Computed example of a mutant assay.
Amino acid sequence: MKKQWRILFQILLYNLVLAACVEYDAKPFTGKTLPRTTGYSTGVTQDWLYFNLRTGEQFNTQAPNYDIPEGEQKERKDWDLAFCGYRLRTNSGTSGIGMGGAADLGYGNYNHWTHVYQLPQNLEWSIDNDSEVYVTMSQNDWNKHLIDNNLDFEKNPWFDPNKGPANTLASANPVLANAMYFAGPPPVYSPSLHTYVVRTADGKRYFKLQLISWYNADIEIGDGGGRISYYCDELSQ
């Protein structure tokens, strides 16, 4: 019996020493994270955070529609990119009067793209429209919809076990809608890890973009869904 205990003790001691020698070489996240959670969870369906990539200025960081109410963004050129949950806008098409847009540069290879001259001449640019991309409705807005249309609450729940939460069309970029996929229930948000290029509202500058996570990547165990983590850097001219 003593021999058995001695062997068990030696195995335990070996495992402890081995564990002490293991080094975890996890690279810290060096990208960006949205300044707050966006989307339906804030109680507002069209909850967009706007960014001027040229100046670094941010809009609606304090509250939904605080600086740029929904609809007013269409007549402004001081923003280039916007987030609502996992959907994105560019200052183009139905979202704005700018010369923005986005294009897909393919899976991965984020660090490969450094200069504008690398962009393919036949690159297909996508501008925003209001007929392809859906955003999740807030429960408050869904309830208002039911009341306005005299619909039964029990027959029309906000969350359908087979379809998930209610959604509605939004003005957004259809190419950037592929940057992250939703599946569920239960809800799962998976980044495509494609690299995209975003053209600014003045049509003169270009930024590469890659979504990394539905959660704040600076937190070890993310619990702030809708606070997207991403990389975004300008391409040299």
Rank of each mutant, 00 (worst) to 15 (best):
K155Y: 04
R87L: 05
D233E: 15
E132S: 15
D130C: 06
L151V: 02
G203S: 11
V44F: 12
N60W: 07
S92H: 04
I228G: 04
I219Y: 10
Y107K: 15
H194D: 10
T90H: 02
D80L: 08
A166K: 15
W214T: 00
P64I: 05
Y40C: 08
D78R: 08
L209A: 09
F153W: 10
W158C: 00
G225L: 03
V44H: 13
C21P: 00
T136E: 15
E124C: 09
G225R: 07
I212P: 00
E57N: 14
W48H: 07
Y14G: 12
D148F: 06
P186A: 06
S95T: 10
T168A: 03
Q118E: 14
G164M: 03
K144F: 04
K144Y: 08
Y117K: 15
T114I: 08
N143C: 04
G39V: 01
H145F: 15
A63I: 02
I219E: 15
E23G: 12
S213W: 08
T200A: 06
K27E: 14
Q121P: 00
K74V: 10
N143Q: 12
F207T: 02
G226K: 07
V133K: 06
V188A: 14
N91R: 05
Y230S: 02
R36F: 06
T136P: 06
I221A: 13
D160Q: 04
A63H: 12
N178R: 13
V198T: 02
D128R: 11
H194S: 09
I11K: 10
Y206G: 08
G106C: 01
N129H: 03
V197S: 06
Q10V: 12
T200M: 04
G85F: 00
F83Q: 01
E70N: 12
F59I: 00
M1K: 12
